[in-house]
Structures are given as C-alpha cells and as structure tokens.
C-alpha cells in the first residue's frame, strides 16, 4: 500500500492532479451540502454540461480553456439560479434544456473544427493530463478563494439554506448569498471538470453531501464529514485508477459510490450506538 502511494507521488503530473483534485473535492463537498439541501443538485449537473460547451468553444478558437469557460459557466449559474427561483418556469425542465443544448453546441463546434477526437472524450470523462502548469496554479488559487469565501460566509450560507424566507424577513440579503453559492459552484465545476469530466463532476458535489447526511445529523458535522469523505475518496480513486489502470474520474466516482453505500448501511444501524 505504502509502495503504491510512493509510486503514485513520484509522478509529477499525478501530484499536480492530486493537489488540484483534492482541493476541488474539498470545495465541491462544502458547496454540495448546501446545493443538495436547497434542492439545487441539478444546477451543478447543468453547469457541468455548459462547461463542456464552453471548453469545446475554447479549444476550437485556440483560447485558454479556463479563462473562457469560467465567465460562461458563471453566467449560466446566475441564469439557472434565476430560473429555479422563478416558479413560473419549470426549473428542472429548463435546466435539462440548457444542459442538452450546451452539449449539442459543443459537439457541433468540435466536429466542425478539430473533429471528434480524444479532446471530446477528455472533456466528457476527464483526464489527469489535461492541465498545464498555468492551469494548475490558477486552479489552486481559485480553489483556495472558494474555500475561504465559504468559511467566511458559513453562517450566512447555513441561514439561507435552512430557511430562506426567515433569513430574508430578518434582513439577511438572501439573494446575494444564493448568488455567492452559484458563483462558487460554477468556479468549482469549471476547475474540477478537467480532471473529472463534464459527465462526472456533479458526482463530486452530490455524493459526499449525501453520504455524510446518512451518518451525521448537525450541519457543521455534515459539512466537515463531507469534506473529509470527498478528499479521501478523491485520493483513493486516483490510487485505484493508477493500480487498476482505469479512468481517473470514473474510479473516483466508484469509490464515492462505495462510501455512499457504506454510509447508508451505517445510517440504518440503531442510533444509540453512534451518539
């Protein structure tokens, strides 16, 4: 086991992917709790598809992928938030429309320019080789900013997640904090989707939150457990991917699935033993 870890860490591209990935896993776990509880999980999923479209456009136009996709996905995040808050439009249907349209535009642009090649595969399912040194530094910086903002606004995020109308009634600007959550989610998704892939990144948001909610019943505990589960799953997913020569993103999701099932089983055990 220790040999495996040593071997893993001897490759610089794996080290880079581990650092960025574990930071993204941490951020997505923190945000995921709020998104899942606010019934916004689908926004995470929708944003990753928009991210795919944006990456395709960036590649076709030979632009830096992160710098193009971050503003597009942030814009989409605000749009999806508006749609979800507006009861007149059916939020889930609108998200599905935006998701599939983004994928379609991405695929059309790619096939017209570079052709359907390994890039598309990497966008969809992720690649640990995808990031340049510049991307790595930007990703690390963005993850740290997301993390710090989350910690700084933790109590406000709790309040708008638990009871938005009470927060509004007592003078908390809930709209701003909803936008903050959407913004942080958008940045996390763009940074994470290079490694995890557009189709798999939303699992980083949803799985750790659901797993920790099975076993912990206070908010701070859920947030902390979720962060720990997410970073550990990311690490062991990468290790498994190296050991069994399986795709990294898919292996990480598989490890998360195993942990989720384990948490469900623990959650079914009688309460007394755990409190």
């Amino acid at each position: 086991m220790i040999d495996l870890i040593g071997e893993l860490l001897s490759y610089s591209f794996i080290r880079r992917a581990l650092v960025v990935g574990m930071l993204v896993a941490l951020c997505s776990a923190l945000l995921g709790v709020s998104l899942v509880l606010k019934r916004y999980s689908m926004i995470g999923d929708g944003l990753s598809h928009v991210g795919f479209g944006a990456l395709s456009v960036a590649t076709a136009m030979n632009l830096a992928p992160l710098k193009v996709s971050i503003p597009i996905v942030v814009g989409a995040a605000f749009l999806l938030l508006r749609i979800s808050e507006n009861s007149k439009i059916k939020g889930d249907a609108a998200i599905a429309l935006i998701s599939s349209s983004s994928i379609a535009i991405g695929v059309i642009i790619t096939s017209l320019t570079t052709g359907m090649n390994a890039d598309v595969y990497n966008f969809l399912f992720g690649s640990i080789l995808a990031m340049s040194k510049g991307d790595v530094i930007l990703s690390i910086a963005l993850s740290i900013v997301v993390f710090l903002l989350f910690v700084f606004f933790y109590n406000k995020i709790f309040a708008v997640t638990f009871d938005e109308s009470f927060a509004r009634a007592t003078g908390i600007k809930a709209g701003i904090y909803n936008m903050l959550i959407a913004l942080l989610t958008a940045v996390t998704i763009v940074v994470g989707m290079r490694i995890m892939g557009a189709l798999l990144i939303s699992s980083l948001i949803i799985f750790p939150a659901l797993s920790s909610m099975r076993i912990v019943r206070n908010f701070r505990g859920v947030i902390l457990t979720s962060a720990v589960i997410s970073t550990i799953c990311f690490f062991w997913g990468m290790a498994a991917s190296y050991a069994f020569d399986t795709p990294a993103g898919a292996s990480i999701v598989a490890v998360n699935l195993v942990v989720f099932i384990a948490c469900c089983i623990i959650g079914l055990l009688p309460r007394k033993e755990r409190e």
Partner: peptide, 27 residues
C-alpha cells in the same frame, strides 16, 4: 421575529437545535 408556516423541506435537514436557534442572531 418571524415564525413561518412549517416548511416540509426542513423535516429532513441536518441541523442541531442550537445551530437553528443561533441562526436567528445572524442579523
């Protein structure tokens, strides 16, 4: 101080009593 109508989404929310009560002090 506002006591809203019961919200079904809270039925399954992981929060301790203290976390809920102190959130009232946020303003």
């Amino acid at each position: 101080g506002y006591l809203p109508q019961q919200n079904p989404a809270q039925k399954d929310f992981p929060a301790s009593v203290f976390e809920v009560v102190i959130s009232g002090c946020l303003n």
